[in-house]
Amino acid sequence: MKKVITLAIALLLALATAGLVRAESSRTVYVYNWTEYIPEGVIDQFTKETGIKVVYATYESNEAMYAKLKVMNSRGFDVIFPSSYFVNKMGKEGMLLPIDKSKLNNFKNMDSRHLNHSFDPGNKYSVPYTWGGTGILANPERVGPMPEKWSDLWDSRFKGTLLLQDDLREVFGMALKKRGYSLNDTNPDHIREAYEDLVALMPSVRTFNSDSPKIPFLNEEVAAGMIWNGEAHVAMGELDTLQFVWPEEGAIFWMDCMCIPAGARNVDEAYAFINFLLRPEVAATMVREWGYATPNMAAIPLLDEATRNDPAIFPPISVMEKSEFQNDIGEAITLYEKYWNKLKANQ
C-alpha cells in the first residue's frame, strides 16, 4: 500500500518537473479566445514558423472572460479577444496594456474606417479582429413577407415563431432601436419603455437562444428573429428559404478585438501572435469560414466576388451609418438586469 502511494507521488513529481523544464526551454503564448474563432491550422502554422508554443483556452461570453481576468488581476493570459464594450470597460479599469503599433508591421493592413471607434479612441488598447452585427433572419415561406424593420416583429403574424438572443444587451438594444433611441441608452424612462414593448412582444417569442441561434431556424422551430450576420450566413447556406435583412432602424454592431491584458507575461510573443493574425491570408480564411466581416483591407482582394459583395457579410455604408456599436453602460446595467428578470419571471 505504502509503496504504491510513494511510487504514485514520485511519478507525479517527475511529470510535473518534466512539464516545468519544457515550459522554460521554449517560448509560449497564452491565448484566451471565443470558441471556434481561429481557423483550423492557423495555430499550427504559427508554431511552425515562430517556434512559439500556443496554449489555447476558450470562453463563451465576454462576461465570463472579464470575471476570470478580474479575479486573476489581469494575469494568466497574453492575448484576449473582448468585444467592443468590454474593450471600453477593461481599458477604463486599467486591465489592458496599451498597444505599441510599431511592433505590429501588419497593422497597416487595417481599413481606417474600422479604427478609432467610440469604444476605443485611437485604438489605444485594441486591434480589430473581426466585426459583425445583429439583424433579422426570417423564413418568408412560413410567415409571409420579409420583415424590414425591428418594429415589424411586433406584427401578430409572428405569434409563437420568434427567436430572440438570450442576451439582455442585444434584446434591449433591439427594442431601444425600434423606438429610435440609442442602444447604449441609460435614461431610465427609455429603458422602461423598451421593457414595456418587450412585454408586448413576449407572446410571439418561441425561444431565447444565443449559443447557436441558427439551430432553431434550421430545425424549423422558429420562422423569424434576431441573429448575428455570420450565423445567418451559415444558416442560409443550409436552408435556402431563409433570408437576412439589416433592419431599417439600424443594427446592433459589435467588434471583437485583440488585446493584451495588463498582467501578461509573454508580451513579445503576444505581439508576434497578433501580427500573425493580421496577415491577409489568415483574415480571409476567417471570412470564408464564418461569414463575419474582416477589418483587414489587404484580405478583401483575396476573397471571391460573391463573398466580397455579400451584404449579409459586409453591411453596406447606408446600414453602417444607422447602426451603433455597443458601449459600456456602467451602473445602468443593473436596471437592464432588473427588467430582464421581470420580463422572464412573468412567463
Binding site: 425561444t207 431565447f208 437562444n209 438586469e337 428578470n341 422572464k344 412567463q347
Partner: peptide, 14 residues
C-alpha cells in the same frame, strides 16, 4: 427555450 428563469440562471446572471 430559455423563457423561464430559474434560480440557477438568476445567480449566473447576477
Amino acid at each position: 427555450g430559455g423563457k423561464h428563469l430559474l434560480v440557477g440562471n438568476f445567480i449566473k446572471n447576477q
